[in-house]
Amino acid sequence: MNAVERIVGSMLPLPRAHVDTDQIMPKQFLKRVERTGYGQYLFWDWRRTSDGEMNPEFVLNRPEYQNAKVLVTGPNFGSGSSREHAPWGIQDWGFEAVIAPSFADIFFNNCTKVGLLPVVLTEKECAYLTELAQHEPNAEVTIDVPSQKVTANGFEADFDIDPFIKHRLLNGLDDIGITLGHADAIDAFEKSRPPYKPVLSRSQ
């Protein structure tokens, strides 16, 4: 995972509530076994009209938002399926952060594992940034992880972040490496597990 310290870039506004991961990354793209290349499938159905043509109105298709680095959206973003393909797609499209009033738990977790920064601001703050992005597509926002601040022209807001997630993001740390530092404790725990816990064997 790459370290995340400071993100500077323009925003893409998607003011919708309860955007679920079936919309972010539809099921037909979950058949791939690769880890990369999901950006082209992002919001597949929403980017198209009912007859399958590209919908020039949808915000992701609009030329003025092609270089956006920050997705600004509504509450409960990323609800539903646990598919990590959703954050992979958002990241692969070119986004480095998502700002919303709230996130679904598993999605939030998945973002922090892949270095896509989820930022929770209040509904009012999100509405302000949405309007800014709608009126001035080139307006830049800065998200500074060390100071936990989001700033834009005349706008400033603090955000909360779990101290350990912050530490991991700032240093680009791999969770597995950290856990393996506790190998002795895992070994000891395993020795104390009761014998009635189920075990599978390939001969079954």
Partner: peptide, 19 residues
Amino acid sequence: GIGTSEVEHVLATQTLPQN
């Protein structure tokens, strides 16, 4: 439920860091 990064974590360590 967990994401794919966590699947890898459990495969490798049989543990999961959780708040």
